[in-house]
Amino acid sequence: MYSRSMEILVGAFMLLGIAALAFLAIQVSGLSLNPSNRDTYQISATFTNVAGLTTRAKVSIAGVTVGQVTAIHLDPMSVRAVVDMSIQKQVDYLTTDSIAAIKTAGVLGDQYVSISVGGAPEMLQNGDVITDTQSALVLEDLVGKIITTLGTNN
């Protein structure tokens, strides 16, 4: 009853399980085996409003992903939102006057941080803060503004 073919089938079963896990890791979750991803440096930016932004949201320059949001917390002094981001090491051309904006991918899409690089000679270092920011567009505020504008025009 206990035979070699049984051993082989059980071995194939285990291998299939490992293959499935590899498939889910690489093809489905896009886990990269490239270690360069882990070489990052930290910067942060302060916003008046981060509505809808979550940790692990993308950070991109001109639509290309260069990092992700690692933490969001409130600064008790200024009562502004501080967004910590990790940026890939090879992206070392973020100037000190870069502008960070919170944008939405499509109408229903996720929020992400978009950075526009400025022209200053100094580059951002690990731990630096971007102060020139555009906060998230809050739909209710926008609608409220339009209504007040319409009201004054009348």
Binding site: L21, L24, A25, Q27, V28, S29, G30, R56, K58, D110
Partner: peptide, 19 residues
Amino acid sequence: FWANMQNTVEFREDVLNGS
């Protein structure tokens, strides 16, 4: 299809928790 999947699925959060 694949890009959207890869962008949202997190290995630790989704695959490992499922395991």
